[in-house]
Amino acid sequence: MSSPAGQAEGQQAPGGPAGPGATAGTAGTFARARAEGRAVLIGYLPAGFPSRQGCVDAYSAMVEAGVDIVEVGLPYSDPLMDGPTIQAAVDSSLSAGIRTKDVLATVRAVSAYGAPALVMSYWNPIERYGVEAFAADLATAGGAGAITPDLTIEEAGAWLTAARFHELDTVFLVAPSSPPARIDLVCRSCRGFVYAASTMGVTGARSAVGDRAQALVARTREHTDLPVAVGLGVSSGEQAAEVAAFADGVIVGSAFVRRLLDAPDERAGIRSVEDLAAELAAGVRSSRGAAGGGAPGGGAAGGHTGNEVVR
């Protein structure tokens, strides 16, 4: 029953009985935003940061202020795609003893706020947990899926099989360096949306997100009808608006973490996170003149994609 890596198309997903906690993934969220003529706002924090309860409160504040999808980071000892800001937060979570089961508990708590929750994890913790067990437990916790930044498509066979069975989104990255054949391969394995890395490099705020992001989104759309969300470097409402003009989603991580790191205490940090979320939410709503038009993304009407389930 397992389909080879890279061959699994999203629309084949619900081939068998879904797992007990199957969710609609993030498709409905993208479809609704598209109907509103705006981009989706996705906010990241590592689980357990700034504290076990503090992160849940921060996610709540983010959703309250207009974040559409939350990305729950699974803290990992060797985060080689992350810059110093997220490294510092992840170190603090790990020092506080956050474990994989705590991350799943966080997903369960966050799902109650009504925004889909995706886990962002390097591959080893998932492999170590057990690929099928992780997919099952994530679905049971109400999780929408996972973003796996260091899992290449060639190595993703077991994950794709398990995630399809449990109707979880499988989000992989494309990069400015990706040639067309590679973008095609990645898009075929994505369900939910495609994560376009805006620049070459690691996570962290940047003064300019760059033309390469726009070009990459355009190149990605040649290969898929899935929504394309842009991450890496976005930290202000202005940048969010700029990206929202050409992408279906805007992903913000380090800027939220920075607010918490710089705050005098946790409560002030969470207020600051809420302020930033509101600024970004206004940003993704401000700049859709031309963008809605021919851009595919948001698959409610499309005959394609794994995001056909709109509940």
């Binding site: 080689l80 795609m81 591959w123 930044p149 260091d150 899992l151 290449t152 060639e154 190595e155 992989f172 990255l173 494309v174 990069a175 400015p176 360096s177 990706s178 040639p179 590679r182 990645v186 890395a197 070459m200």
Partner: peptide, 18 residues
């Protein structure tokens, strides 16, 4: 793909694949 039995392979950000 660089596998010695089950070992090896590539687990890296997509940006590095090219």
């Amino acid at each position: 793909n660089g596998h010695f039995g089950p070992y090896g392979g590539r687990f890296v950000p997509e940006a590095l694949i090219p």
